[in-house]
Nucleic acid binder design. Structure first.
Lengths: 145, 145
DNA sequence: TCAAATCAGTACCATTTTGGTCTGGTATCG
DNA sequence: CGATACCAGACCAAAATGGTACTGATTTGA
């Protein structure tokens, strides 16, 4: 079915949740609640996203996560690569020497061409583009504490 | 990492092998030999490709397979769809109502956008384009650099 | 008409990937 | 010091994937 893994999909949702509160440090529990995902799952996602340098973490009481840089400077491609590694539609798009047909393979060039179109599309979408347009105004749910 | 299944990759190889002999009916054994793949695997591929109407089969002695239409009229997208079903990068790109977030999901639109770019790229490559350059003059070669 | 060649369909199994949970550890704040 | 909250890793169950085997149906040709 040619799709990204479910975790990658979740990662985009989690990232938009964090991006919707640019000023705050959100705990994993808050993010899980907002994204409607299980807490351990969100925890694992954030760990991976942190390793990739897309979010930064703060430990201890009142700790949590925050975007590592502005939402305009984070692309969908970076999120996908953080979760799944280098983008490649076939084995041989990513690394050389995977199959012995490589030298005389007619198919490989076409796949690489499709691949570059895809990664271009992923690079062209930023996290800011994925936010609801309304978020420039007041969010629908003001933090009732 | 965001790739088509290995069988889909094999399917493109098998299709180019068949396309390289436009006049002949090739047996599964011949195709397997030429593609350097196992015979039962090729058999399964061809059955699926046949159901999708991309190749036609002939039974009995001297039977085998042949392209159902000209190589220029078969796109990479059709091969992928034959093997993997509708092209969609996320669950919700393909069908509605998969997740309860759908109504207010900010992420979905961006995925659908990426998706349409990808399927456009797959549609733009024909089986004829994937053959060795001998018999085909590639119309446009967008310089990928 | 019989036998060989060849595709058709189904069922099955082994491996890998994926998604998710749990446990213990460490840092920070009050 | 202790409560909170992130960190790291192992671990497990379920699903998808790739491959194999077996049986049946159809056509050709001797």
């Amino acid at each position: 079915m040619l799709r990204v893994s479910r975790l990658t999909d979740y990662a985009t949702v989690v990232m938009t949740c964090i991006a919707a509160h640019p000023a705050d440090v959100l705990s994993t529990a808050q993010i899980a609640d907002e994204a409607h995902l299980e807490l351990p799952t969100v925890s694992k996602l954030l760990k991976t996203l942190g390793h990739a340098g897309l979010v930064e973490s703060f430990r201890g009481v009142n700790g949590g996560y925050r975007l590592a840089r502005d939402a305009h400077d984070i692309s969908l491609a970076q999120i996908v690569e953080a979760m799944e590694g280098p983008i490649g539609m076939t084995e041989c798009s990513v690394a050389e020497g995977q199959c012995e047909r490589e030298a005389r393979c007619n198919v490989r060039g076409s796949w690489r061409q499709v691949n570059s179109v895809l990664s271009g599309a992923l690079r062209s979408v930023s996290l800011a583009d994925m936010l609801p347009a309304a978020s420039v105004a007041v969010p629908e749910r003001p933090a009732a504490s």
